[in-house]
């Protein structure tokens, strides 16, 4: 566990850079992590995914699978990979200030 300054705020992160306390997250932090992850500017499409992940995590207490993001979140697989190339679920979860997803699918 470590402290890291993101977008002018000191937050708790784990060794992979995931926020460990979701309540420390804000939109500025998301934008900063997105840059670090090579995602660039966050568009409405990106925010739709982030907001779904946060809502689902709050309701279920676990991270959704990628399939759940496509089915319940309404973002098709192709679009997810286009929005977050190189690891759609991993990267969007990190930007959303949530834990790293632990499912295989």
């Amino acid at each position: 566990m470590a402290e890291k300054e993101i977008a002018g705020k000191t937050v708790q992160v784990n060794e992979e850079g995931y926020l460990t306390n979701p309540s420390e997250w804000n939109r500025e932090i998301a934008k900063e992590i997105a840059k670090e992850e090579g995602i660039g500017e966050l568009t409405d499409g990106h925010w739709k995914v982030i907001e779904f992940l946060q809502k689902d995590y709050e309701e279920k207490g676990t991270m959704p699978s990628l399939r759940r993001v496509t089915k319940a979140g309404g973002v098709p697989t192709k679009e997810l990979y286009a929005l977050y190339p190189g690891g759609p679920l991993k990267k969007s979860s990190k930007i959303a200030g949530l834990p790293k997803p632990a499912s295989c699918v």
Partner: peptide, 17 residues
């Protein structure tokens, strides 16, 4: 566990590139 049936899984892998 959100593991899709084979036809859907094939589509998913294809759509993921």
């Amino acid at each position: 566990l959100d593991i899709p049936p084979i036809p859907e899984f094939i589509e998913m892998i294809h759509d993921s590139g």
